[in-house]
Structure formats: structure tokens, C-alpha cells
Design a protein around this nucleic acid. Sequence first.
DNA 1: CGCATGATTGAAGTACGTCAACTCTTGTGG
DNA 2: CCACAAGAGTTGACGTACTTCAATCATGCG
Lengths: 263, 263
Amino acid sequence: MDNNGLAPSLPNQLVSVQETSMDGKADMNITTPLAGPYHPQAGLLASFIQETNFDRSLQLSGIKRNLTRGSTLLHEEDKAKYIYDVVAGTIKAVKILVDGRRQVIGFFSAGDIIGLPLEYRAYYSLEAVTASTVLCYPITQIDAAMGHSPDLTKLVFAHVHSELEKQMDHMISLGRKRPKERVASFLLKYYRRRQEEGFADGGIELPMSRVDISDYLGLTQETVCRVLSLFKRRGIISARNSHQIQILDLPSLEHIAQSGLIN
Amino acid sequence: MDNNGLAPSLPNQLVSVQETSMDGKADMNITTPLAGPYHPQAGLLASFIQETNFDRSLQLSGIKRNLTRGSTLLHEEDKAKYIYDVVAGTIKAVKILVDGRRQVIGFFSAGDIIGLPLEYRAYYSLEAVTASTVLCYPITQIDAAMGHSPDLTKLVFAHVHSELEKQMDHMISLGRKRPKERVASFLLKYYRRRQEEGFADGGIELPMSRVDISDYLGLTQETVCRVLSLFKRRGIISARNSHQIQILDLPSLEHIAQSGLIN
DNA sequence: CGCATGATTGAAGTACGTCAACTCTTGTGG
DNA sequence: CCACAAGAGTTGACGTACTTCAATCATGCG
């Protein structure tokens, strides 16, 4: 329904408002094959297409899609047919057990790419944590394009590597870290990301709920809450509200992330 | 030192015994670029080269390497320069925290491929659980070959997909399953693999130590032991020795793997 | 303004980890 | 061939950190 200020990133003339029904679960607009001036927030793949002398005849076109909070982009059982380029908002990848237990595999936000070449059965669902905008590239197009562009192949493998490295860290977190370490590491990850974006103050934004965090960290929401409360009592962090955290004592947080010990 | 029956898979004429020192940590032989009659146990990449009309001029050659039990194939800090094709034995991928805690990311045995194109800093160490044989393909060669063979690119991405799917399962195991479920799932994984190999009896082989299993499952060795002992008492499994397990009650094991509940 | 949802705090129980003792293997050398 | 040592595996006792269950407190949306 709403294009509520989420995607001012693409020049208007690129975006037609033609509605289609991909799986009928969220709204979607279609762009013409990407052209026009480069815009940094148009998504990584789009940027790549702009930056390199990428063969336009390959017709690599991203379908822009707006997702409302909570809507599902992809179901775990479905066949994955698109690679998603997150332009705005936050998407979570979730696996669910038969009895309802959830494991959040990862959170993706602007600048992240979700998915891989070679159509496959999805191994997780994708849900919008907040209202989000993604560019959808048909995998078949990516497959074809890779055959003609070694640079694109490299880009994709670089993406795979960074994805795998993240998951390794996540795995050691789930398998071998204590709750305090997991929460501290989680906060630090967002802090570092924020730093890379050029914001050196300790302010971070956690767009997801406590339940999402606990499902990501393999804990209960109560444990996550208690750890955060502990950090607040110790003056390590403060919170404007449950989504806006301020890191006050970075060294302590880093120490806890490694040792799990709190003074 | 010994080529003790581990790699009878390659016709002898393919294997020269020239010694080199890759990192000086294990013995190694070099093959000439693979040629000669196809052999199913020569490794997946080698099979691919044999089966398809793959351009021989690309000079994709596997270096055969024998590893003694416990030796290290790759260190976490090193740059990954090879893709490994396991021919015999079992290799474990391990991440270690500063204080010594270990997380085993996965176990690889004959038929498995380890690694990805595009040279990168390794995100785990690779160690031989048992005496093993691997074929090492220089990543640079794979990179180059992929540029000329879309089929090889597909093979690699199929490998990436199966690898990622395994890791998703592992992640949900670490994050959301109880110890009993983890151990049961672990046993079932080996059972299914055995089944795919055509052995329908419930016998499975666990080549790794209890500590390795616990580091894989995110538990202590004591907990793994206790759970296995419980399964034995309940008549769900029996054990010839600590590495040779017989599954007696498959339905129960499958039930435990899902619910964690034991009658 | 009121309700619904999410977040937080509290109390109680237990499953898993820790520490420790003991047993079983395996391999080596006398 | 047996004895011994070293390592791996197993079992027991105990404590606690986390989960579970429950109540209360914020927050935001209709």
C-alpha cells in the first residue's frame, strides 16, 4: 500500500507503479531495467551494474518491492527464484521447527544481499522486521549474467564469503558462548556497523523485537532482557527506548563479549 | 609417510610421488593433471572433469595429499589457497576462541568438497580426524576454469547450497535443540548418509572422539556420553565400541530428534 | 482514552555444566 | 607376551545459570 518514505532512493522515473502478484503476500512495484544516474542507495547489484561496464544487453533488471512490517518475502518451503538486494528496512531469515521453536539465521538491512545463484529450495523464510524495500533480481537472470561477466561472479562469491564468515561467527556464538557474551557480541556487531557508516557515537538502533533477538541468539526473551538490564545497571549501556541503545562503556562490552565475565 | 590403504582410488600411474612442502605440516604427493579412466572415488571435482567435456587445456590439476591423524590442513589465520576434495578419511572444520573453547563447524568425509572459489582468509581450521587423503585444487585455477565452464560454476554453486543448508540445520540445532535432540539428530545424519551409500542396516561409524562430537554439538563431552548411555539403556542404540554404533530403534530416535522427549 | 502488544521483573525448578573419580582402550617397550 | 602408561570414555555428586511460569509495567495504536 504505502511507499511511506522508505524508498526515496531511486529516481522516480525508474519506478513504474505496475502491480504484480509474485506470491500475493506483499506489495510490489516494477522498475524498468536499471538506468539513469547512479545512486548509492539503489542496492549493491544495481550499483555494480552502474559502476562497471556491464553489458546492458543482458537485461539484468531489479523488481522493486515494498514490504509491510511482518510480511513474508519468501517461505521456507518455496523455491527461491530471486536474489534480494535490501534498499531500506530490515529483513530477518528464520527457520522454524515443527513445534514452533524458531531460529533466526540473520538480519539483513540496507546494503545487504540475500540469496544465491542457481535456483534452489529455500532453507529459510524471509520476513520483514520493519517496513522494507528490496530489489528482486530473478536468479535465472543472474545465472545467465554470470556466464558473461566474471566480475559479477566475483561479486557474488565475495558475497558468499562474507555471508559464510558471518554464519561461522554466529555458530560459535550459539554453540560456545554464554548469554552475556552473545548479547554483548550482538550489540557490538551493530556498533561496528554503525561505525562503518561513519557514526562514531555509541548510539545503535535495534529494529527487531526482543523475541527476534532471543531467537537469533538462541536464548529466551527473558534472558535477553535480564542481560540488557544488567548492562544498564552497570552503566555499560543506556536505552532511550527498547530499540534505541546507547553504548557508554565500549571496553567493558568488548571484554564481556570475549570472556562472558562482568566485573 | 604411509599411504596405508587410504587411497587405492586413483590408478597408480596418475600419482607421482614427488614431495613438496605446502606448509610443512603433512605429507603430500602430486598427481599429473588428472587423466585416465574415471574412478568414482577420485573425488567430486575429478569426476566432474572426467564426466564432462571439460576443456583439458585449462589445466585443472589436483594435488593429492595424505594427512596423518591430527595433522592440520589449514590454519584459521591462513589464506585459503586450495579447494579440497576429500577422497578418504574424515576432516573437521574448527573455530577456536581465545580462551580455548572450540566449535566444530562440520565434519567432511569421502565425497565432500571443502572450500570456495576466490581466495580468502580462512574462517576455520581444517584438521584430520583420522588419517585422510584429499585432492587439493588451487583456487586460482578453479577461478579461471569457472570463467570458461558454466557447468563448473553450477557445480560449485550446488556445493555452496548444500553446504549452506547443512549449516542452517546445524545452527537451529545449536540454537534451539536440547542435548538429546542434538545427539539424536547427529546419529540420524550419519544413519542417512550410510543409507545413501546403500547400507540399510542400522550400523554407523563415528570416526571422531566424544570431545569432537561435543564441540560440534555445543555440549560437554560428559553430556554427550550421558545421552548416549541413556539411549543404550533404553535400547535405542547399542555400541560395539565407542566409534561403532548400531541403531536399534529408528522411530524412537527420530522422535527424540524432533521433540527431545524420551519415553 | 483504553486496549493490545511488547518489555521487564520476580520466584521457583531443573537440566546442564563442573569437578572428580574411575574404567576401559590402545599402544609401546621391556 | 604381558605390564604399564597415557589417553579416551564413562559415571557420580553437586551447584548454578538458565528456563519456565507468572505478574506487572511500558508503549503505541485505534
